[in-house]
Design a protein around this nucleic acid. Sequence first.
DNA 1: TTTAGCACTCTCGGTGTTAGAGTGCTAACT
DNA 2: AGTTAGCACTCTAACACCGAGAGTGCTAAA
Lengths: 337, 337
Amino acid sequence: MEPAARKKRILSAIVESYINTGEPVGSKTLINEAGLKVSSATVRNDMADLTERGYIVQPHTSAGRIPTQLGYRYYVDNALEVKPVSESGREYITGVLSQNADSPEALLQNAANLLSQLTGCIAFSTTPTGDESRIRKISFVPTGAHAAMAVVIVSNGIIKTKLFRCEFLITPEILEVFDKALNEVFAGVRLSSINRPFIQTAAAGFGELSLLMPSALMAVKDASELAREVSVYHSGLGRLIGEARADSILEFLQNRHDLAATLKRLPQGTAVTIGKENSRVELAYSSVVSSRYQIDGNPSGVLAAIGPLRMDYARMLSVTDCISSCVSGLLSEIIEY
Amino acid sequence: MEPAARKKRILSAIVESYINTGEPVGSKTLINEAGLKVSSATVRNDMADLTERGYIVQPHTSAGRIPTQLGYRYYVDNALEVKPVSESGREYITGVLSQNADSPEALLQNAANLLSQLTGCIAFSTTPTGDESRIRKISFVPTGAHAAMAVVIVSNGIIKTKLFRCEFLITPEILEVFDKALNEVFAGVRLSSINRPFIQTAAAGFGELSLLMPSALMAVKDASELAREVSVYHSGLGRLIGEARADSILEFLQNRHDLAATLKRLPQGTAVTIGKENSRVELAYSSVVSSRYQIDGNPSGVLAAIGPLRMDYARMLSVTDCISSCVSGLLSEIIEY
DNA sequence: TTTAGCACTCTCGGTGTTAGAGTGCTAACT
DNA sequence: AGTTAGCACTCTAACACCGAGAGTGCTAAA
């Protein structure tokens, strides 16, 4: 075998062995496990070279080697073979997800739970992105003598409600007026175009109704803004028990806003982000396996699992990808109705 | 001073000093701080007695004393003076809580956030208990050609929605039928009496409508059951960073169901549960300061803060109590409308 | 009942010591 | 040029040991 090819094989073998055992890998172990037909001294020379090029390091002088982030990256990009989830596995996943999946929110929360369970990692999911979605319909439900609830139905399947109060008595006739006037203004409108000027124009257009409308209008505006924001679900915090990374992960979770922003930045499709490649420093020693699900063929929200650098990347990728595609399928079913 | 009184004073001084400094308290320190007019040897004798009776322990032979759970309990029950929150503090709390407080859910989530912020602990809150509440009204909102949403409004202010699908086309007329038939059955009914027999009787009573009703009926049943379950909010997980108790708290959070059960079991009014007094072993080294808020004068859900045994009990109690009473007030305002 | 005095115990930080693992280097070999 | 055997070297982990300092419990006297 050529030296260059052998080095690649040695690197892969080191990564795999370390992923399996968690122990630094020495030259001797390597020969046994990778079945190389060379002596340990040769392997040591190669390892010295790989160390110099930054793929592996020694935790201390007299220890074996462990992969660096660069090493993991090489492994994921070049040496990893991802087997898709088996047919029966896929059926199981679809089965679990279709239970209690009448709203996108419930489905995505379920997906996070399942992802956490199947990967043993902390899992996240976001509701579908709303920017490009349109308002389908607005309804009003009376909740009291002076209070009502605005229900905003969005084309991506999200339904948001917002309570509001009025000085005057809420009657079926008044709600009828709200319904007509506000659907006229909002139906078919993109969520991203509902901003202050839009609302002001709308308010100006109500004419003689302008005394009645403000609270209902604001409720619809608030609900639309809520619908535009993605919600982030997570599952499996308990996995942190006894983990060294617990502190930084908790710090990462601390700020809901940064969390949403980080998830938003994840790439399309199914991908791995290793350690310092992550946009947040708190994840410098974690790997994120993520997959964007689709709605009508367009990339939407994401599913993500966060685990240690040392993880079974092949399994993580196949499971995440499978759940993501099941979510895509079930979501379009929900919306279709 | 009599020996008995002096011992009580020594115990209180130990607890207070330890709460403030976190250091085991020795006989010498004690004389300086508590201003006792006796020698260190006398104090040592008293301390030996208190140790024997289980109020204090030594972490190791050559260290000072720290309170046991019994010690903390004595302190909380007998030596603690709780000052109510100042008028301006109370105004601040009411101000924060009234923002964005149009639904009980939002209010309780806010309350948990605020409690965590003001106490520096992890905080929990539950939505109002539903068992004794009654269904006020049911509405239906069309969400698609074959899908609609049931809206169940409960007397404790909780509003739950549930989506459902039908084979047949959803028309305003159909929804009108649902509305009439189901309000007739459910309006005024206690949540706790909505069980299988109740649903079966209802289904049997629909007569010629029985082909149309099942999905709507089940949606209302599901929403009612959801309304009966309390939701648990929490805030301040980030406080766990670097805490020794992080593992057990995460374990405690792990199971949503046990969590709800534990919170349900908390006593009325404002109370402290110290260490092993807690029903969950995971809290054996934590203290829970809790307060039940009221709806119409009846005890309902709870607010709780979980912190280390070594906490400023006086402050914790006054803050928790204040937030709880503000929540009670704001909740009745919400429901009134 | 209180107090002074003293011997005792334990922790904490620092220091050696030893066994074992794994390396890098050199010089010989193919 | 690439490979290999052999060996000296380095480093860690575990353990025991030591001395200073803190705080105690006990005793005998006030």
